[in-house]
Measured scan of single mutants.
Amino acid sequence: MATKAVCVLKGDGPVQGIINFEQKESNGPVKVWGSIKGLTEGLHGFHVHEFGDNTAGCTSAGPHFNPLSRKHGGPKDEERHVGDLGNVTADKDGVADVSIEDSVISLSGDHCIIGRTLVVHEKADDLGKGGNEESTKTGNAGSRLACGVIGIAQ
């Protein structure tokens, strides 16, 4: 089992970053940390998408990683996509320092995120509470600013 993974985020604009993942036990939580720069100040949706395909930019990554066919939600919700990591918060300089621990994603097994795409979005994720159909699919997080395929790390 891989215990570490990394993702280099890039987009068409100024947004870029490096996100690290570490899972010490196969059924334990995954620590997610790193930094994203070039964002507007505020909240930005942060999700693992189904495919590791960036051939047409971030759009070819498909929908959120959702092997259990659930509705979109927040990272602490029972009803959520596996890939729903909530929001990252950018400061006035456009930098989001990421520090998350998640017990639904994994670096092995059915919820493995390796080979899938991590995406940072234009807007805040409403965590499935926006009151419309799009909220239950995407959290109304808007366009995909930057993305990268999650790969095994040393």
Rank of each mutant, 00 (worst) to 15 (best):
T136H: 11
P75Y: 11
K76T: 12
N66K: 07
V104I: 15
G74K: 02
V30Y: 02
L118S: 00
L145E: 11
K123C: 10
G42A: 01
P67V: 13
L68M: 05
D125M: 04
G34I: 01
I150T: 03
G151T: 15
V30Q: 02
N20C: 07
F65D: 11
K4A: 14
H64T: 01
H64E: 02
N20G: 07
K4I: 14
P75A: 09
V149T: 10
E101S: 12
R80A: 03
E134L: 04
V15H: 01
A141M: 07
G74D: 03
T40P: 11
L39S: 00
A2G: 10
G94F: 00
A124C: 11
D77K: 04
A5K: 02
T89M: 13
N20E: 02
G34D: 02
H44M: 00
G45E: 08
I19R: 00
A90N: 00
L85M: 06
G130H: 09
K37V: 09
G42W: 01
G62C: 14
G128W: 03
L127R: 07
I100F: 12
N27I: 04
G11N: 09
T138M: 03
E101P: 02
E50V: 06
G52H: 03
G83P: 04
A96D: 13
S106N: 06
D93H: 08
S106R: 09
I100Y: 08
K92L: 10
F51N: 05
S60M: 08
L85P: 01
K92A: 08
S99I: 06
H49D: 06
K4Q: 08
I100G: 06
D97I: 05
K76D: 13
D126W: 05
R80W: 06
T3E: 03
D53V: 12
I18F: 08
A124S: 13
K123Q: 14
S135I: 08
K10H: 11
I100T: 11
G148D: 02
L118P: 10
G151D: 06
G148T: 00
S60G: 13
P75C: 15
E78Y: 11
A61V: 11
F46P: 01
K123H: 08
T59V: 03
E41F: 00
P29R: 07
A146W: 00
G28T: 03
A61M: 01
L118V: 08
V6F: 09
D110W: 08
D110V: 14
R80V: 05
V6K: 15
Q16H: 13
E101L: 11
G94S: 04
G151I: 03
A5S: 05
L127P: 06
D102S: 14
S106K: 09
K76Q: 13
H81K: 06
E79P: 14
G131Q: 03
S99R: 09
Q16F: 15
K129R: 11
V82R: 03
G109F: 00
G131T: 06
G11H: 00
L43M: 13
D77T: 14
N54V: 10
V6T: 12
G62S: 08
N27R: 14
V8A: 09
I19Q: 01
D125N: 09
K92H: 06
G11L: 02
C58L: 06
V120S: 01
E101K: 11
G83E: 07
Q23K: 10
P63H: 14
H47Q: 09
E41S: 09
N66W: 03
E25N: 10
S135A: 04
D126P: 15
D77G: 08
G62A: 12
K129T: 13
G109Y: 03
T117H: 13
D12V: 09
N27M: 06
V104M: 13
T40K: 09
G13D: 11
G13L: 06
D102C: 12
V48G: 00
V8E: 11
S106P: 04
T117F: 10
E122F: 04
D125G: 10
F65S: 06
I150C: 01
V32W: 03
G86Y: 00
I114S: 01
G11W: 02
G38W: 00
C147N: 04
G11V: 05
G17F: 01
V82W: 13
A146H: 01
A141R: 08
G74P: 15
V15F: 04
T3A: 12
G42R: 01
L43V: 15
G115Q: 01
F65P: 05
I18Q: 15
D110H: 14
K71T: 06
I152L: 03
D97F: 15
G151C: 14
K4M: 00
G131A: 15
S106V: 03
H72A: 11
S135Q: 09
P63F: 05
V30G: 04
A141T: 14
V48A: 02
H49P: 04
S60W: 15
H64W: 03
G142F: 04
G148H: 00
G109C: 02
N132G: 09
G109L: 00
L145M: 10
V88R: 00
A141D: 07
A2C: 07
G11I: 01
N54F: 08
G38A: 05
I18T: 12
S60H: 08
G83C: 12
G130R: 11
C112K: 09
I100A: 05
C147P: 03
T55R: 14
A124K: 09
K129Y: 07
V119G: 06
A2S: 11
I36S: 02
E41R: 06
I150Y: 02
I36Y: 02
S69E: 15
F65M: 08
E22Y: 07
R116Y: 04
D93A: 12
K31Q: 04
G62W: 13
G28H: 15
A90V: 08
T89R: 07
H47P: 00
H121I: 08
D102E: 04
I105N: 07
T117N: 07
T138R: 04
C147T: 15
S108H: 12
V104L: 11
T3S: 10
N140M: 07
S103D: 09
K129A: 08
G52I: 05
T40Y: 03
A124V: 09
T55C: 11
S103A: 11
T3L: 12
Q23P: 04
H44E: 01
E78G: 13
L43Y: 15
L9W: 00
D84P: 01
I150N: 02
D84N: 14
H121P: 04
R70N: 12
T40C: 15
G11F: 00
N20P: 02
V149H: 04
A2M: 09
S99L: 10
Q23G: 00
G45P: 13
P75L: 14
N140R: 07
A61R: 11
K4S: 13
S60Y: 11
K31T: 11
L127Y: 07
R80F: 06
V48R: 00
